[in-house]
Design a protein around this nucleic acid. Structure first.
Lengths: 138, 138
DNA sequence: TTTTGTTATGTAATCATTATAATTTTATAT
DNA sequence: ATATAAAATTATAATGATTACATAACAAAA
């Protein structure tokens, strides 16, 4: 995606398209690995030597406010960020730590005991061992 | 539950029933609020003045190893602990932070794209506003 | 070009959790 | 019982992700 359309994507969400924000957005779109803030920082820092980690966190929070990205919280210790806007769940491999997308039927979940609750967000994640790690027997 | 049966519950899981562990187990069984480690510490510390926070964390990790408790990770910043052994999901209120149990049909979720994955654990949580907070309009 | 608001940066602070080492308690064996 | 070994508890320090804060750079508008 070219810089202009990246900027447009931000403007559409009422986010001022600074160079840093564009580069972070670009990284997220090109690397659908549910990266941590640290991974994002390291990758984008290679292109913007003056980039600060604060900017990464600020930007991610701005993106989340605008529903451009969503926090994936599976590990208790670090948040991972997902730019995939489609409704989907996740699978985390307990061996390699990788997080996979899974397009499961989340709407099939019915919770009768939550009838009086205003549900705004549904999150599903599975844990286990991914095919690669099963093969490697670890 | 009396102390003996609490001890038995631990012994059954091959956990040595120390006084601290029994008291922490008792707290978890009597307070089904998905407490944080800090909440557990504060409550049990009132009964055991010498209790250390390390012991709380150690104990919780031991309990988790034995599948006696499960970590509920919804907020990114703190882990909450659940002694409810039945399969169930959670609802966290974005206003008051409380976590509610919900006995939803998690097995109805089918993820065809995970056929080659060994699924060991399924987690579901919803977010939104609970009835009390809806009433209070906050 | 001044003024004003927004964004970025760097550093310090926060806070949950883990690591470590020393002490205490419990179990085992002589 | 007593000595020895193993396990659990404690206190403190370390870690590490995230946020707070103050300052600097930047962009927009008058």
């Amino acid at each position: 995606m070219n810089p202009t359309s990246l900027a447009d994507k931000l403007i559409k969400q009422h986010i001022r398209p600074s160079y840093q924000r564009i580069k972070i957005l670009e990284y997220l779109l090109d690397n659908r690995i549910h990266p941590t803030a640290d991974q994002i920082f390291n990758a984008v820092h290679a292109h913007i030597p003056t980039l600060s980690k604060s900017t990464v966190y600020n930007t991610l929070n701005v993106f989340m406010e605008a529903n451009l990205v969503r926090a994936v919280i599976i590990d208790g210790n670090e948040v991972r960020y997902d730019i995939n806007g489609e409704e989907h769940g996740h699978f985390q491999c307990e061996s390699c730590g990788r997080i996979y997308d899974s397009y499961m039927n989340i709407d099939a979940l019915n919770a009768d005991d939550l009838n009086d609750f205003a549900i705004k967000d549904k999150n599903v994640y599975f844990k286990g061992i991914c095919p690669q790690c099963r093969q490697n027997r670890n």
